[in-house]
């Protein structure tokens, strides 16, 4: 199983150069059955990453480009009166896919954002009293431009919590960039990717990830992290209980990817930054002078158990 995973990772890494850690975390997020928020300036390969992932995992993928005039119906679909059948027929929106790439979510109005987030959370869509379940592996990758760009509606804090992880791609380093320049068109490469995994594999592993053993010390460690994050916060900030669960789930998935049956503190630490950063505000300009994110500082302030 580990070899299959490694194969998948290798394949994606052949397209997304120099971002092994991000790719790994992305896969981890999928295994933990969570949704991903990628935040970065345009052009660093957010879309490519999503496509490569979908291809390699053999998932159907739809892409929604969020704009300021996007309506909820454009995402979840709507019921249209079908004259031939004399009744309302539900036309599924792009969200009915195993993997949805929501590009630049912060360009859309809060209404549209809400629709997406609600669907993500419930894993089902209700239109006119009818509930339509979303496909079984359901995975949203939302991308977002950095907040201080003009003309955006940043996701409210409460909504950010619904993403299991938030990642930054960042500019590739020189070698990776050279590779990109020499390697030809990304889009063609992505198209040529073959699925490495089947959906069954994925579902099985998602199930397996939940069963990874979380021992007492690890639970205490997570609790310590939560407690630590809540210290010294004006107006009751800090990590929510949901964040704690997210941390545990991701750590389990990470341990699974490491080929282990139990969670180590290292697993928690590996995913902590991705899981906690958007819940703690440790990104963008947070006023920290030493460059370390709040999440990293938090990790270093809590002794491992």
């Amino acid at each position: 199983m580990k070899s299959l995973l490694d194969q998948t990772l290798a394949q994606i890494n052949s397209v997304i150069l120099g971002k092994e850690q991000v790719v790994r975390l992305t896969l981890c997020c999928i295994l933990a059955r969570g949704h991903l928020l990628i935040e970065d300036v345009p052009g660093v390969g957010k879309t490519t990453l999503a496509q490569a992932l979908a291809k390699s995992l053999g998932l159907t993928m739809r892409r929604v480009q969020f704009t300021s005039d996007l309506l909820p119906a454009d995402i979840i679909g709507n019921s249209i009166f079908d004259r031939s059948e004399q009744k309302f027929v539900f036309h599924a929106g792009p969200i009915f896919a195993q993997m949805v790439l929501a590009d630049e979510v912060n360009r859309a109005s809060p209404k549209a954002q809400s629709a997406l987030l609600e669907a993500m959370e419930e894993r089902q869509v209700t239109i006119d009293g009818t509930t339509h379940p979303l496909p079984a592996p359901f995975f949203v990758i939302a991308t977002q431009n950095p907040l201080n760009q003009v003309g955006t509606y940043p996701l409210p804090e409460s909504q950010l919590d619904r993403f299991l992880m938030r990642l930054e791609l960042g500019f590739p380093d020189r070698d990776a960039e050279r590779g990109m320049l020499m390697g030809g068109d990304r889009h063609d490469q992505v198209k040529d990717l073959k699925p490495v995994l089947t959906i069954e594999h994925l579902l099985h592993w998602q199930q397996h990830a939940r069963e990874i053993h979380v021992s007492e010390p690890i639970i205490n460690y997570v609790l310590d992290l939560l407690e630590a994050s809540r210290r010294n916060q004006p107006a009751g900030g800090g990590l929510s209980p949901r964040a704690g669960m997210a941390l545990q789930r991701c750590a389990q998935a990470w341990a699974l990817m490491e080929g282990r049956q139990m969670v180590y503190p290292e697993d928690v630490q590996a995913v902590a930054s991705a899981v906690m950063a958007h819940r703690l505000g440790g990104f963008g300009s947070d006023g920290s002078s030493d460059g370390a994110t709040i999440a990293e500082r938090l990790i270093k302030s809590v002794p491992a158990r």
């Binding site: 940043p154 916060q233 004006p234 107006a235 900030g237 505000g281 300009s285 006023g287 002078s289």
Partner: peptide, 28 residues
């Protein structure tokens, strides 16, 4: 040297207050 676009919520408040608390002329 910093700007925080209008938002509300605990996280935003915390970020703003932290920036104010750690403000120094020698920034960055």
């Amino acid at each position: 040297h910093q700007e925080f676009p209008p938002l509300s919520g605990a996280l935003h408040l915390q970020k703003c207050l932290t920036a104010l608390a750690t403000y120094s002329r020698r920034w960055p």
